[in-house]
């Protein structure tokens, strides 16, 4: 595989074409649910994502929906992240966020930790992206939106 093909893995191209969670869903807060929204922009390339998160009283992610525009890496990354975190509790989301950031700093080497890579699932397809310093921030855009929307929901303070 060329480094270009390593970056644009089929999983990524598929997610970019048929993204998961795309299309903002109205958040009906209540029943103890907490909701938050975040808008993130990558000022160098203009990529954008608006993301909403819905957290149950028990502290699990009930749903993520988003809208965005940008390169295939940024859009696929939000999509993969969405499938990964839905149903996860906040501690697990924080762990996945940490692992994904580690992966993005790995310069193409991956995490060298099978359990961690299993946890990341399809998100390990972004290993190739970490070889391109200019593209790492594309892959991280959705994760930044998730973290921020969780913070805005107040869920992080109560958990």
């Amino acid at each position: 595989m060329s480094t270009l093909e390593q970056m644009y893995q089929q999983v990524i191209l598929d997610h970019a074409k048929r993204p998961v969670g795309h299309g903002l869903v109205e958040l009906a807060a209540g029943h103890g649910h907490l909701a938050g929204e975040s808008h993130q922009v990558n000022p160098t390339c203009g990529d954008e994502v608006t993301l909403r998160v819905d957290v149950t009283p028990a502290g699990t992610v009930a749903g993520v929906s988003w809208e965005g525009q940008g390169c295939s890496i940024s859009q696929a990354s939000v999509s993969v992240m969405t499938s990964l975190v839905e149903g996860a509790d906040l501690a697990e989301v924080a762990r996945l966020d940490g692992l994904f950031h580690d992966l993005m700093s790995s310069r193409g080497k991956g995490l060298d930790d099978d359990a961690a890579e299993d946890a990341l699932g399809d998100a390990t397809a972004f290993t190739g992206v970490s070889q391109y310093p200019a593209r790492i921030k594309c892959a991280l855009l959705g994760w930044a939106a998730l973290k921020d929307s969780l913070a805005r929901s107040g869920a992080l303070a109560t958990s």
């Binding site: 644009y8 390339c45 203009g46 390169c71 295939s72 593209r135 594309c138």
Partner: peptide
């Protein structure tokens, strides 16, 4: 159907350097 950033990456893979983004003219 292809974002500018992705266009630039494929060109770069062939050694062709172009600029992508809003070129400071949003």
């Amino acid at each position: 159907g292809v974002h500018a950033h992705d266009v630039g990456q494929v060109l770069d893979d062939k050694g062709i350097a172009v600029r992508v983004g809003h070129h400071c003219a949003q």
